[in-house]
Design a protein around this nucleic acid. Structure first.
Lengths: 336, 336
DNA sequence: CTCGTGTTTGTAACCGGTTACAAACAGCTA
DNA sequence: TAGCTGTTTGTAACCGGTTACAAACACGAG
């Protein structure tokens, strides 16, 4: 193995020898500490260039005890809301000198356990997971590695780990209240699978709780554009349409809008349509889709700051509630 | 620092002492080598449990020389095509025991240079980047660290690094040919910024080259849903509509479709619309958007296999061309 | 010239695994 | 019982940085 590589990578000691200084001095130059004379620093830098020296991350993290890596566990990347969130998270973390290791669970418990173990095994300094519902195996794993852990996409000050996110219950109730205030009393709630997504489960529970005298029907479909279309198809076939359709994701709202168009059902004249997440097409569609703007990017940014701060100070992060708000567009109208 | 932590994490030597064996034996147990007697193995495992021993990734990778991490550099996560690709890439890599470190460049050269440096600095064993056009600084960096590097989203057997992707030129020409075969001679090509995206630049060049007697107009807009709408607005204002609009991304095609609806321009009767990427809504929209299906997930999977193989065998990966194909839907029609 | 202070540099002991090599040991044969 | 083979285990030297501590040195003051 070693025999093959004619020239192994240069080490810090090689550089020291070449520059005629000690390893401590080279290390100081690398770490930008200002305790090295200009003259020496130049000699060292020159040696580094000549030898094409590249410091070993493993050695550094072994002796310093810091890996400079943060792990993020998300159910999927193939959904705009998570992608946008991770996009910002990565950017912010990298600004603080941390790398982001991503693991996708697909919402499957065993996969989640395996992946969180892998992440921790990689020596991450901090962990950021989406959603608060996890298996015992997951909790045990996190507990044992004793790594600062943050929960996102959810706000719950009483959760086991600090949460950074929006209050799914409150938001869902706000959406429902909005439709009610427009005079809607027959509402269909289109949603994705609840067994793998506690945010959705929370929203549904909140809506059920706040339904009051309104007639609320739940239509479970897949968390895809197609799911929204399926929901509309099913509703049309099964009986009278509600006066409003609330999709718990704009992905589904998009599909619903298209299916309504296909069936010549006018939005919002014949039925009002409301979404969730405020994904980019909702502002452009015809009509525009009334939606709940979730601060996905902000969540990434806040989570980054929180974990970095936790690692820096050693003080556990505090939960942070992010605000969402309703964006009113043409897809909803007031009744009579 | 050390004083604070009452109980430091147990090390392999602690485990050895507790189990009354040598460190070599513990290491053997950890690495599942079958050279340890059942009796000893049990004692060691018990000690590991009692002490809550967690092996140090840094130490392991220092002495073994392997970090088990792969880096991926993408322009953005906030675009379905990249997200889907990364989703698969991560899943496949994790199956091979590798973690995925993601870095987002935003298409900015300086950011790209900084981030690739960070990735390499983290000690990644392999690097996967999107697109083949990069700065000299980028190349120098990769060269110096001498890490196996793969290029995706692009197929070009002559590129500096092995490419895994589709032939953007051929695909673009196929799309154009398809519209021509339907009798379209006045075509508008809506596209995103070319300065940060070589895939788009390649597509445009190929279309220009193959235009022939067809009248092809290019409409540069942002790579967003809104961009597609902007393009339509601009075209309507500036003169006669083309008979077909080809959007180099389905994201833009979606925006274009909505804007056409808004302006009461019927698709495909008054204008045909074709997209690129075959994102999920294109199959559901009304009408369905004719598009080019790009094998994003397959690309993630193939790239994963290629880099893992490269690392395992030491043999440079070979370029792989992935096939794309046209998905005909209702948004395009043959001219009289 | 001596002492004190501040700057620059070097030595060597870590960090926590992996692994080459050798030793110890068991079982079997001659 | 000596000798051989194969299995199990231990010792100690790595891997390549960081850093505590001390030494060397320069400079100005007394």
């Amino acid at each position: 193995m070693n025999v093959i590589r004619k020239s192994k990578r240069a080490t810090l000691r090689d550089v020291a020898r070449h520059a005629q200084v000690s390893v401590a001095t080279v290390s100081r130059v690398l770490n930008k500490s200002e305790l090295v004379s200009t003259d020496t620093r130049n000699r060292v830098n020159q040696a580094i260039d000549v030898l094409e020296f590249v410091p070993s991350a493993a050695a550094r993290s072994l002796s310093s005890g810091r890996s400079r890596a943060i792990g993020a566990l998300v159910p999927t990347l193939d959904h705009a809301i998570f992608a946008r969130y991770l996009d910002t998270l990565e950017d912010q973390l990298s600004g603080h000198g941390y790398a982001l290791i991503v693991a996708v669970t697909g919402g499957v418990a065993e996969v989640e356990e395996r992946k969180v173990h892998n992440l921790l095994d990689m020596g991450i300094e901090g962990l950021i997971v989406s959603g608060k519902r996890h298996t015992k195996g997951f909790a045990a794993c996190v507990e044992r590695f004793a790594v600062p852990t943050l929960i996102t996409s959810y706000y719950d000050p009483d959760a086991q780990y600090p949460t950074i996110g929006y209050d799914n219950s409150a938001i869902a109730q706000a959406a429902l209240a909005h439709l009610k205030s427009l005079g809607h009393h027959s509402i269909a709630v289109v949603h994705g699978p609840t067994d793998v997504n506690d945010r959705i489960a929370a929203r549904i529970a909140a809506i059920e709780e706040a339904a009051g005298e309104a007639q609320v029907r739940f239509v479970p479909v897949s968390m895809r554009v197609e799911g929204g279309a399926d929901a509309v198809a099913r509703m049309v076939e099964q009986g009278p349409l509600p006066s409003a359709i609330l999709c718990l994701s704009d992905v589904q709202a998009l599909g619903a809008l298209f299916e309504l168009q296909r069936r010549n059902i006018t939005v919002p004249d014949e039925v009002s349509l409301m979404g969730f997440d405020d994904l980019e097409w909702s502002a452009v569609s015809f009509p525009g889709i009334t939606s709940i703007q979730l601060p996905a990017a902000e969540m990434g940014s806040v989570a980054s700051d929180a974990i970095v701060d936790w690692l820096r100070t050693g003080n556990r992060a505090t939960p942070k509630r992010l605000e969402a708000h309703i964006v009113e567009r043409g897809s909803t109208r007031a009744l009579g």
